[in-house]
Design a protein around this nucleic acid. Structure first.
Lengths: 150, 150
DNA sequence: TTCCATGCAAATGGTTTGCACAACA
DNA sequence: TGTTGTGCAAACCATTTGCATGGAA
């Protein structure tokens, strides 16, 4: 895994700068992919992203999307998390929250970094294990589904 | 999802009883699969299980393994969790712990139900979200890798 | 004898890879 | 121009499904 020194406030322009600084090239496909993911709030799956990108720029191959996602993750612009439906990507700066997904209705919610901090501390205390609670989602029942389920 | 009333202390015999009680048949393949998974400590992936079963009873088809796993989960004997490598199955009675997996060395550890309880309470308090911390693993760095990483 | 379970083969769906061509810098 | 990036097609790999046969009960 490459360690990143990349800093980006979340605009496509920044990302392009980061890539340039690494001697990587900016192709129209990359621009489209970067633009699409920078515009995305929260997470998106590779296939969903591929569909969106192909919507505006037909002909962009899915393999290009996968390659670009890996690249952007290596460079530190993106990271991925494991949700119920598989891996999903999001902007690295949005990584500071824990995904809560309702196993019944599929609703999603987040836990802030501060809230997650308390959890991390608990785990750390017991095992000296330094958790990254953002990598896997936390499954469970949302408030509404709890009520309905009784 | 079928709700289970199944009770099993973890022996193949019990499981067979549970299946019988549901009018399901006991074939040699099912016996082999059940025996193998009852003998397994912790979790195992469908493909790994298939390989093991085929080791002792060649000819058992992978699709049979998948079908049997689903069946045993519906019946309440097994459940699955999402680890780094994908879904893994384990005996339902062993479900009471949280998987901790080191993203660096792959080491695995568990959090007991009691320890996890404190975590659940925290999450619940903030969101009225009732978490099932056993469903997804928690990624992070184990004590040793933390030390090495500095 | 009657369903249920299995094997087989094919379909599926996401993801990866090899390679020749295209196009940034 | 020299490399890097892309499209394409094929390969992969885990999982699912349809269907005819086999076998518990």
């Amino acid at each position: 895994m490459l360690q990143s020194t990349a800093v980006s406030d979340g605009t496509s322009g920044d990302v392009i700068g980061v890539l340039r600084a690494r001697g990587l090239r900016m192709t129209p496909q990359r621009r489209a992919i970067v633009a699409e993911i920078m515009r995305t709030r929260g997470h998106i799956s590779p296939t969903a992203l591929a569909r969106k990108v192909q919507g505006e720029m037909p002909g962009v191959n899915a393999s290009t999307v996968y390659r670009t996602l890996s690249l952007l993750e290596e460079v530190g612009v993106l990271s991925h998390a494991h949700l119920e439906g598989g891996a999903e990507y999001h902007r690295a700066e949005e990584a500071g929250h824990v995904h809560l997904t309702c196993s019944n209705c599929g609703a999603e919610d987040d836990l802030s970094l501060e809230e997650a901090e308390a959890l991390s501390d608990l785990i750390e205390r017991h095992r000296e294990f330094l958790p990254d609670l953002t990598h896997f989602a936390i499954s469970g029942l949302c408030a509404e589904c709890r009520r309905l389920a009784g």
